Computed example of a mutant assay.
Amino acid sequence: MTTRIAIFASGSGSNFQAITEACRNGLLEATPALLVCDRPGAYVVERATAADIPYFAFAPKSYQTKEEFEGHILQELARYEVDFIVLAGYMRLIGPTLLNAFKGRIVNIHPSLLPAFPGLDAVGQALEYGVKLTGVTIHFVDEGMDTGPIIAQQAIEICPDDTREMLEKKIHEVEHSFYPQTLQQLFSVKGEAAIR
């Protein structure tokens, strides 16, 4: 049985696309069971529709609390029998409701070599700081902002003439292959552990 994943995204969904294509091509042995999106008008919803993947798009402001909307998300995850949560440009901190229900089963991708440049605009932070190397980090999610245990990292050189757009393009190219590969390794290890 393949791992049933929910992909959480807030924007255009290029990593969502890369992950779902890897599943379809057999490079990632997982089933994209659900998209969860906190911006109903985001382009990622169109990608999910085109790929015939169910989605739950919600407006956080229509709920009283984070607990309430995360409780609703949990109902959707149960409905689609989701095993694992994959964050792919989801711009919200995960709260205790989801963390407790999916302990050790939520991963995120971040465009820096954590612990350097956590939080928003990691690319801008790296350029402003003037570092020669940045990269991509895949990590488990905990209560903090980009503070969970690191699963894998890949370095990316920042060239002197790199503009923000050029660096973002380099990072996206790495993310789109590195994330599915890392998830495949993670799921196969978890599968072996379950068999033992």
Rank of each mutant, 00 (worst) to 15 (best):
T3P: 08
A6Y: 06
A6D: 01
A6Q: 01
F8I: 07
S10K: 06
G11S: 09
N15Y: 04
N15I: 02
A18E: 02
A18L: 04
I19D: 05
I19H: 06
T20Y: 00
E21D: 08
R24P: 04
R24K: 13
N25W: 00
G26Q: 08
L28G: 06
P32W: 11
L34E: 10
V36T: 00
C37Y: 02
D38E: 01
R39F: 07
Y43A: 09
E46L: 10
E46K: 14
A48S: 05
T49G: 07
D52C: 03
I53Q: 06
P54M: 01
A59K: 13
A59C: 09
S62L: 12
F69K: 00
I73V: 13
I73F: 06
Q75K: 15
Y80P: 12
E81I: 01
V82R: 05
I85Y: 10
L87S: 11
A88H: 11
M91C: 03
P96T: 13
L98V: 07
L99M: 12
N100K: 13
A101S: 05
K103T: 12
P111V: 03
P111A: 00
S112K: 01
L113S: 08
L114P: 00
P115G: 10
A116G: 00
E128I: 02
G130M: 00
G130N: 05
T134A: 04
T134V: 04
G135D: 02
E143H: 08
T147A: 11
G148Q: 00
I151H: 04
A152R: 13
I156S: 02
I156Y: 05
I156Q: 02
D161L: 10
D162G: 06
D162T: 09
T163S: 10
T163E: 10
E165M: 05
L167V: 12
L167M: 03
V174I: 15
E175N: 14
Y179V: 14
T182N: 12
Q184P: 14
F187K: 15
K190L: 15
E192I: 15
E192S: 15
A194M: 15
I195P: 13
I195K: 01
